[in-house]
Structure formats: C-alpha cells, structure tokens
Design a protein around this nucleic acid. Structure first.
Lengths: 179, 179
DNA sequence: AGCATCATGTAACTTGTTACATGATTGT
DNA sequence: ACAATCATGTAACAAGTTACATGATGCT
C-alpha cells in the first residue's frame, strides 16, 4: 500500500525534484492531501533508486549548503506509477477527529460547542481560500489545447479540495443552527 | 492524540458495550469514519479501565462462549471526553489514495482512467446508500422533544457522510466528462 | 465439510509523527 | 541577537493493519 512511494513518483513524473522539494510540494502543493516528514521522503527515495524507478539526475553543490540531489523518474518508474493508478482500490473513509467531536455534541453545553465549531469552521475557510487561489493560479497556466496537460489533473484534485471545504463549512453552519 | 481512546469513550457515553461491540460499532455505525482492529480496542479498554475512565459493569458468561465483558463509562471518563471534545484542534486533510490516482490521470489512457473512475464511483454510491438508510433509521428513532438526544448528534455525523459521498460522486462524474 | 459469527486477546509488521542533528545564509 | 529557510538525514515513538489463536454454534 505505502502510498508515499506513489506520491513521490507522481511528483517526479512531472518534473525532476530533490527530496526537499518533494516534501515541500506534498505539504503545500498536491492538496494538502498529504503531509510527509523528511524521514519518509529520504529513505523512500533511496529505495526507489535502488529499485530503478528513480535515478539521480545530478547534484547541485553550493559550498555553504548541503548538496541538493535532484532525482528524475525512470521509464520503469513511470510504468509502475501507471500500473498503480489503474490498480483497483476500495473507497476510503474519512477519519476526521472533529466528526468524532461532533458525535459528542449532546454531551456538552451548546454555547461551548458552538464556539468549538466556529473555530474549526474558520480553519476550513482558510483552507478553502488557499485551494481557490491554487485553482486560479493553475488555471491561468493551463494550456487548453494540450489534451494531456498534467495541470488539468492537478486542477481537478485541488477542485476536490475546494468542494470538500465548502461542504465542511456548510455542515458546520447547519450544526451550529441545530444547537 | 490517539483518537481511538475517545472513540471508545464516545460510544460508551451512550450505552455500556463490550469490546466486541465497540469494534462492530466503529466499523459500521459511527460513520464508517473509523475502522479499528481488536488489537486496538482491547488494550485500549484495559488502559482506560486502569485509568478509571471506564469500568467493568459485568461479565456475561455463556458456557460455550468466551465471556462477554460489558464496560460502562465512569464520571471521570465522561469528564475526560467532554474536555477532549472542547479541546482546540486543527482542520485535518483528506488523504485519499484515489485523489493521488486522479492526479496521474494525464499519464494514462482516458478510456482506462474512465473505467477506474466509474469503479470507485460505484463504491461511493454504495456507501451513500448505506448512510442514507442510516440517517432515516436514526431519524425515525429520534425524540424531537429531547434537546440533548444523542441521536441528533449521530444524525449530524452520518449526514456529513451522505454529503461527502454525494460530493465524491459528482466529482467523479465531472472527472469522467473532462477526459 | 466449510465458512461466518461471536468474543477475547496477542504478535508481527507497516505507516506516520515528532524531534533531533548539522550549518551557512537571509530576513527581522 | 534570533528565527526562518535551505537541505540532508537519523532516531524514537505512536498509530494502524493484517494475521493468528482459541473454540462452540449455526448456516449453506
């Protein structure tokens, strides 16, 4: 299963990157649908290289900095990624702590619960704004004549984020009204 | 963080249950927003008992079966649960493998991708049906005169599930059209 | 005969999170 | 002076998954 392996390949399929870049991208760019730590990225890159799915393109060495190791995907890597993308997989569940908290609304004073809901609503509004900006940014760069522009896929994914946050916010509002 | 601890308490706050029940409830009833294995439930119950948040209410022993240990929440447990519910917490991210697969749409043949999308769309439709049935079932039992009926909270959570699945399905449809 | 359910639990393994370590540069 | 950023990586821990073990009943 280990999906970071494929998350790494997904990014490298678009452009060569360093481990550091990959980490940054995952924590901002893809969604944020994934958060990873360096401890996952670097060992995974090493494994992928060993397996020939990825290879070192070059090392950028500035004297005052650690070497920046740029990786690129190989044909085998791209193949593995396509295979995984088409692999059947089950629908996943949500698993959000706040839903569990909402499940306990009946136990707490309505006023306190409302404050709690308002707070996470605010956070989702922030996320929504980020995703919306990202969609616009990507849409501006998109080449509509290109049938297989990676950007189109990126946009779809971020749009999911936009819709998800909208749903979340609307749900929070309804929750508050009910209390 | 360890949210199963609170998931266990959330269920026990409503009615006494055995470890087995808790496992079943989590995998069907709450959402399915959580899936847990027995390896998580039983040790957690033991820990909670040690800490006095939960206590053994009784043991139901049929000769031909393992003893069924019924647990109930204590006052301390209820208090800890309320505290956690009101604790501030950040908005979480989605983390769904299929989104990552969608991110790679541009790499694969549109026809194959469409089949893939259709498949997981079907799965989400199944989930939607389950959640909808659950909402109706709960709504029928709800006592509208009771201002703090736990069922109201349950319904809100499952409604989130309904809306989420609808969003997912609509998104899949749009994805397919774009390819 | 074989599998699912009830009911407890343990063991082994894979993931994910948090924190640490190094060390120059750039911004406040 | 102090924190953040770049850039690699390791270590320790927490959480989640899969499989196993027991053993009777009941269904196909």
């Amino acid at each position: 299963m280990s999906s970071i392996r494929y998350a790494v390949l997904s990014l490298l399929a678009r452009e060569p990157l360093s481990g550091y870049d990959i980490k940054q991208y995952m924590n901002n760019r893809i969604g944020p649908f994934w958060k990873v730590g360096s401890n996952q990225v670097y060992p995974e890159l090493a494994k992928l290289e060993e397996e020939g799915l990825v290879k070192l393109q070059g090392v950028e060495q500035l004297t005052y900095r650690p070497a920046r190791k740029l990786y690129e995907i190989t044909d085998a890597g791209r193949e593995a990624l396509v295979l995984w993308t088409l692999e059947p997989g089950g629908a996943e569940n949500v698993r959000d702590d706040f839903l569990l908290k909402a499940y306990n609304s009946w136990l707490v004073e309505p006023e306190k619960m409302k404050a709690q809901i308002a707070e996470i609503k605010k956070q989702h509004e922030k996320k929504l704004a980020v995703y919306q900006a990202k969609v616009e940014e990507l849409a501006a760069q998109l080449d509509p004549s290109d049938r297989s522009d990676p950007l189109a896929s990126s946009i779809s994914v971020v749009e999911f984020g936009v819709e998800y946050e909208r749903l979340y916010i609307a749900w929070c509002e309804r929750l508050m009204k009910k209390l």
